[in-house]
Amino acid sequence: MLYGIAAACAALLLTAVLAALLRLPALRAGIVDRRRQRPLPVLGGVAVVAVTCLVAWAGQWSGIAPFGDGVGRLLAVAAGIALLGLVADVWRLRARVLVTGAAVAAAGVVPYDETGAWGGLLAVGWIVLATLAFKGLDHADGLAGTVGVVTAFGAGVCAAAELMDGLAVLLSVFAAALTGFLMHNWHPARVGLGACGSLFTGFLLSSAVVFTRAGYGLERTAGVVFSLSAVAAADLLLVVLARLLSRRPLLRRGPDHLAHRLRRLGPTPPGAVVLLGAGSFSSVLVGVLVHTGWTGERAVLWVAGGVVLAVLVLLRIPVQPPRRSVSTQVRGQLRVRSG
């Protein structure tokens, strides 16, 4: 208990310091997110990943907080996904490469002896979708980090209930690292999570939930897994439906995510994140209560109903089309004149 608190405090402070130190090198190297109004350095994810791995492995090496079966491999594979994300931040990899990498990584961490073949296949699919969904949440200052912290605490409680102490400590360290990162990512953000941090977040959390639910019935497991990731799932569902209805490419970026549409209703950028964070807390709480047996499985239906209602309402909110740059407008005028 005392080690867990000390490890979490160390992770929070180290991430806050390292994220601040990496901001200037990211700007100088041009590792930035240009979708924002101003270029945002995105090496904050490197700080989260590095500190999480460092503190967690320190507990393993010292023998104070050993990982347990499969947790060390999970962390190593999650770090590999983060490395792929870092490459994407630097060289702008195609989305299909990230999907393929997430699928291969997920196939390597699922405990098939407990899930079975079909259950393992479904788990791989869920991990891939959740990983991409958390990457999609990185569209607003503080959103991916806030939802990640809430989900990590919920998954950590579930792991502790299953006596997976090593996984519970890892998730608490990760939650603390994300909290330290949020000191620089809250609106207006000075450092971004990037594909490195968002892919690591989605992969680590979804894989951890699969670990805690392995061996349970498929129907009840699906409800708990969905509740723990309801906000990310809602964002993914909203984007997919909107782009299918408008016949736009699914993997192309656009201002059509949860926070984008929510802000059109009036909330400020921090206000939208707080609302979505509160929604995440509510759904995660339901998932934890169902997992621990404090409430019945039907409680998940309230979460599913809330997600469907939110998606249907926000789907009707028009999104602002991306602004054309001045150079694009000039080129268009020249083409018209030359034609």
Rank of each mutant, 00 (worst) to 15 (best):
V109F: 01
G145T: 02
I81R: 09
L289V: 02
Y216V: 14
S338D: 15
F211G: 13
A175P: 08
L27P: 04
L84N: 01
A133E: 10
A76L: 14
R263D: 00
G108L: 08
L98C: 01
W294S: 12
A11M: 08
R243K: 06
A26G: 10
V147W: 04
L265A: 07
V17R: 08
G136I: 03
G166W: 05
L275T: 04
A47W: 00
R252P: 07
V311R: 00
F281E: 10
R247C: 13
A234T: 05
A29E: 13
L275Q: 03
M183C: 15
W126G: 09
L40N: 11
G293S: 06
G277R: 06
G287Q: 02
L312P: 02
L285N: 07
L74Y: 13
L237H: 08
L204Y: 03
G70V: 07
A29I: 14
S172Q: 15
G59Y: 02
A230D: 06
H139V: 04
W126K: 06
A160D: 04
A233C: 14
H184K: 07
V239W: 00
A123I: 10
R220N: 15
A103Y: 00
H260Y: 02
L2C: 12
C9V: 13
S229T: 15
I81A: 11
L285V: 08
L258R: 04
